[in-house]
């Protein structure tokens, strides 16, 4: 997926924030987008998902996108089955969802994770589990392009593995993962790293090229967990 000559100016600004930004998004792969806070990662994700309109540079990316930036507020008293209904019931038009209904709609890892907690109250889960429940459910929604904005923040490594397993269960999708945690990259056999700095994609590295970078490489400062 080629993004060419992308230019974007914030409303009521005269100077473009992104000017002539060009890079390749590896289709049906995991793309990690890294960069310092304020570098414009979320703005770029908004542009790629069609939430913002570029000044120029039509984007050849699927507009049927899913954007996951944080977990939505939920009543603590609802059960996990209700949370599933609010995500998958919405997607599949099902007013009710039982575990039997759920099985054909989700991948095995998600089903394994949700089954033991299906009748538990949302408020009884830890903060990390709550976020993971929502992430896994949202990832069952059928979309070609999925943007995850810091998905592993607030999630321990054990639970993060569930997330990665679910992402790998849908290899036909193109993922764009915004992260500050270098450990996220280790879960994948193949990926591309895009480094955003000074309003440009300064580097686009394959896994091999990324691994060969010296520890002093400047873009590694974008990671809070090295």
């Amino acid at each position: 997926m080629e993004i060419q000559h992308l230019t974007y100016t914030f409303p009521q600004q005269t100077t473009p924030f992104f000017q002539d930004l060009s890079f390749n998004l590896a289709a049906q792969h995991v793309n990690f987008l890294i960069g310092a806070n304020g570098s414009g990662k979320t703005t770029l994700a908004d542009l790629l998902t069609g939430l913002r309109q570029p000044d120029q540079g039509p984007l050849a990316v699927p507009r049927h996108a899913l954007y996951l930036n944080q977990h939505l507020p939920m009543l603590m008293g609802v059960r996990i089955s209700d949370v599933a209904r609010l995500v998958l019931g919405i997607e599949y038009g099902r007013p009710q969802l039982t575990l039997t209904d759920l099985q054909p709609l989700v991948d095995a890892a998600t089903f394994d994770f949700l089954t033991p907690i299906w009748q538990q109250h949302y408020g009884d889960l830890s903060g990390g589990q709550r976020k993971l429940v929502q992430l896994l459910l949202f990832l069952q929604v059928d979309r070609d392009f999925v943007v995850l904005d810091e998905p592993t923040a607030e999630i321990d490594r054990e639970h993060a593995q569930y997330l990665f397993k679910v992402m790998q269960a849908h290899p036909q999708r193109t993922y764009l993962v915004i992260t500050h945690d270098r450990r996220d990259l280790d879960a994948f056999n193949d990926y591309q790293v895009l480094w955003l700095a000074d309003h440009q994609i300064k580097a686009a590295l394959t896994k091999q090229a990324f691994k060969q970078q010296p520890p002093t490489a400047s873009f590694l400062q974008a990671f809070q967990h090295s």
């Binding site: 908004d46 998902t49 939430l51 996108a65 899913l66 954007y67 996951l68 930036n69 944080q70 939505l72 507020p73 995500v87 919405i90 997607e91 949202f138 929604v141 979309r143």
Partner: peptide
């Protein structure tokens, strides 16, 4: 939250 709901 709205932009996340928007994609759903």
């Amino acid at each position: 939250y709205l932009k996340q709901y928007y994609s759903l």
